[in-house]
Design a protein around this nucleic acid. Sequence first.
DNA 1: CTTCCACGGGAACACTGGGGTG
DNA 2: CACCCCAGTGTTCCCGTGGAAG
Length: 405
Amino acid sequence: MENIFLDFTSESGIFKDKEVLRPAYIPAYLPHRKKQIKNLAGALSAALKGETPPNIFIYGKSGVGKTATVKYVSTELEAICKKIDSKCAIVYINAEIFDTQYRVFAYLARVFNKRVPMIGWPTDMVYSEFKDGVDAEKRCVIIILDEVDKLASKGDEALYNLSKINSELNNARLCIICISNDVTFMELQKPGVRASLSEETILFPPYDAYQLRDILVDRAEKAFNISVLDDEVIPLCVAFAAQEHGDVRKALNLLRVSGEIADLTKSKKVHVEHVRRAREHIDEGRITEVVKTLPLQSKLILNSVIRLNSEGGKTHLFSGEVYNTYQNICDHLGIESLTQRRVTDLISELDILGLIDARVVNRGRYGRTKEISLIVPTEYVQSALTGEYDEALLSIKQKAESSTA
DNA sequence: CTTCCACGGGAACACTGGGGTG
DNA sequence: CACCCCAGTGTTCCCGTGGAAG
């Protein structure tokens, strides 16, 4: 029998090295970021002279090379430190994953060889463990806090503690690099924290169309075999990305998926048509993924919106109607419904996820509401919802049965 | 000027899953 | 082992508030 993997082993006619297009790939050459690299390197160079580098705040929209630049510069720094035998430790934390004060400190403490459980201790204990760990040696420690805005709401305490930690250290010198997508993030912090964490700030402006093109061409040369790309492919990817405030990550992803589709259809070249299909594919995939991972109650709310759309034929709904329908559905399923207050929050979450558009409107005599409309194709949501819906119902049934038994 | 409805901030609570201690 | 402590999450309760229609 033929091996089932045989089909996949054959050399792709399209790709040379697909990894180059993945978000995790850190290029050795970052076009149009010379200034930022220089500034960052300049600030961090203090570490080499035995001084404490300033805390740095880096901001700019997503996909403009912030993380790539910081990682690139920090690995360079690490290399040179090793060479001149200067003690230096660099820790990278993504605050989207370690998104509370406890988790951040617990992770840091572990990095510095302390045994701390990921849950259970009082926070101040974890904090002092971390401090001891860092202070154990005379060295320069650089902590990179990526996506720091994700930490803000739940863990601004963490930022406060970090901002004043240097005064409590005897041996080590600590430098914090905060990376944020949210431009206004630092302005929202307490003055003391802000001053301390943004001793140096570096702005990453969005790429313009020409710069995007440069980057895409550069990567495409590494990723694809020679001349498999139609001439219009890159300009089209650039055009789509430009709509997304110059997000390179999205552009590269689009390019990769286009190539995959071309590969899959046994096409010898990547055509504009493949890019269009890739875009649809990415859109649908994203929406399906988001809807599927929604908590049950949010799904029910989304379902209410869809139902009102299809039955009432209205595209713009008021929160009152949505809440009523939601309650009906809950009754029908025998689920406890949430309060209006809570539903308001869930609706806002759906808004942030980009599934619906929810604007507060004042309707005078008729009070204040949210005007809600679905902003993604109903079919995508519907299909993602129905699959999960049955499972949810099933589990509810099972729960009911087991509780009566 | 009143009235109306739900927005959205904040406190309080319940619950979970993990600690340490005697 | 029983028991209490702790952070984190999802929720409810309470309530002051916006602002155009009437």
